[in-house]
C-alpha cells in the first residue's frame, strides 16, 4: 500500500517509490541515500512526534514530517487508518 513516509509507525518498514521534495531538501535526502527502491524503517519518534527517525542504509536519520511527507513509499504491510498518501500525515502519533 502506497503512503507518505511519515505515516509509518515505529517498527514498520517500506520501500521508497518516489521523492517529490523541493530541490534543497531533495539534495539532502539523496545524500543520505534516499532514492527509488531504498528500504526504510521507522525506528523512533521524538517527544512531539516530529521529527521522526528512520533507519536508512544502516544509519539512523531524523527527518521532519514536513519533508518526509514528500517521500512516497510502498509499506510492507497495510497500516490501519492511513488511506491516502502525499498529504501531511497525522496518524500514528
Amino acid at each position: 500500500m502506497k503512503m507518505a513516509l511519515n505515516c509509518l509507525k515505529v517498527g514498520q518498514s517500506g520501500t521508497v517509490v518516489s521523492v517529490n521534495a523541493k530541490d534543497a531538501i531533495l539534495r539532502r535526502l539523496l545524500d543520505i541515500g534516499i532514492i527509488e527502491g531504498t528500504r526504510v524503517s521507522c525506528v523512533l519518534k521524538s517527544p512531539s512526534g516530529d521529527p521522526i527517525a528512520y533507519l536508512i542504509r544502516g544509519a539512523v536519520i531524523a527527518i521532519r514530517n514536513e519533508d518526509s511527507s514528500e517521500i512516497l513509499i510502498e509499506a510492507d504491510s497495510p497500516i490501519q487508518g492511513v488511506e491516502k498518501y502525499g498529504t501531511y500525515c497525522t496518524v500514528g502519533r
Binding site: I25, L29, I32, P51, I61, A62, I63, R64, D67
Partner: peptide, 8 residues
C-alpha cells in the same frame, strides 16, 4: 525553516 536531516 529549511531542510533538516540529523543523524543519530
Amino acid at each position: 525553516p529549511s531542510a533538516f536531516t540529523l543523524e543519530l
